[in-house]
């Protein structure tokens, strides 16, 4: 019973992290139609900057969190400006940006290695202590992730459905010309989507940095998971992405329990392929 609950909990923690990560990826995809392969590297940079500000400089964790998220957001805007913007309107933009963002990922990862080195770093936990839920014990840091992630995603959802700026993101994603003719600054919207997506990646990095060791390739695995989540859920809708994130998180936790760490990625990809065969638009996508 305890194993079941603790597996369930670790699945929810994973789901919450994947949801944060994947919703940033999904936001960029729905607004610009670009799949950002540098998303994981932006997350890594966020974690490293948070570590530098909080641990190396010693300004404390709150300052580190803010700096980590802000630097990821800023870098996201730079990535958009340098690697995406020159190619808008090209008929093969999707393919070009696959290459440019892959290049961006490599540059950022290698850059992180040059700046911070390959030695493992770790952020302190956001809160100390442990929480007991139905007899299973998780760290308070993980419990915080379970609470914070849905709140952030709720705020993001409110932003995209209730505010002028948030709605303009969705409008630009659906019809760029029409959005421009209503007075929406399309270029700014692109930068905003990228910045917000990167901020979410940075936040994921900061949260993950308290659980795992921070290395230059910290973001590689979450990027793959986020891609599975976004495709699995059906490209384009925030709700579908979040739903899929928790499905994948829980599936992963139980697969690790039953099949072990080694076969879990294999099983996840098999599941993804199966879903795409029977529901080509994703699990929650419209057919």
């Amino acid at each position: 019973m305890d194993t079941l609950i603790s597996t369930l909990l670790s699945g929810v923690v994973l789901g919450a992290l994947y949801a944060l990560m994947a919703s940033g990826l999904s936001l960029v995809w729905t607004t610009l139609g670009v799949f950002n392969f540098a998303h994981g590297a932006l997350m890594t940079i966020g974690a490293f900057v948070a570590w530098t500000v909080s641990e190396a400089v010693g300004l404390g964790l709150p300052a580190g969190v803010v700096a980590g998220v802000a630097s990821a957001a800023l870098l996201g805007v730079v990535v958009e400006y340098l690697l995406i913007r020159p190619f808008y309107g090209r008929p093969n933009m999707l393919l070009i940006t696959v290459m440019t963002t892959l290049a961006g990922m490599i540059i950022l990862e290698k850059g992180a290695q040059m700046i911070w080195g390959a030695r493992l770093k770790q952020l302190p936990r956001l809160i100390d202590g442990e929480v007991s839920i139905f007899g299973a014990v998780i760290s308070a840091h993980e419990a915080l992730i379970i609470v914070v992630a849905p709140l952030i995603l709720l705020a993001l959802w409110q932003f995209t459905t209730r505010t002028y700026l948030g709605r303009s993101l969705r409008a630009v994603g659906q019809n760029q010309d029409a959005a421009a003719l209503l007075g929406i600054n399309v270029s700014f919207t692109f930068a905003l989507a990228f910045g917000l997506g990167a901020a979410l990646a940075g936040l994921t990095g900061v949260l993950l940095g308290g659980i795992r060791f921070i290395t230059p390739s910290l973001g590689a695995e979450p990027l793959v998971k986020a891609m599975i989540v976004v495709i699995f859920g059906g490209l384009g809708s925030l709700g579908a992405t979040v739903g899929a994130a928790f499905v994948i998180g829980l599936a992963e936790a139980f697969l690790v329990l039953t099949l072990g760490l080694y076969w879990t990625p294999f099983a996840l990809f098999l599941g993804l392929i199966a879903v795409l065969i029977f529901r080509p638009n994703g699990l929650f996508g419209r057919v």
Binding site: A171, Q174, N175, L181, N185
Partner: peptide, 30 residues
């Protein structure tokens, strides 16, 4: 385009679906 709209010259496109996934009220408010 957005600067021109800001100045007050606005175009309604022909047969435009605007934003398929948005409700009428939301589109008008936006």
């Amino acid at each position: 385009p957005w600067e021109i709209v800001g100045l007050g010259m606005v175009q309604a496109q022909q047969g435009n679906t605007l934003f398929g996934e948005m409700e009428i009220a939301e589109t008008l408010e936006l």
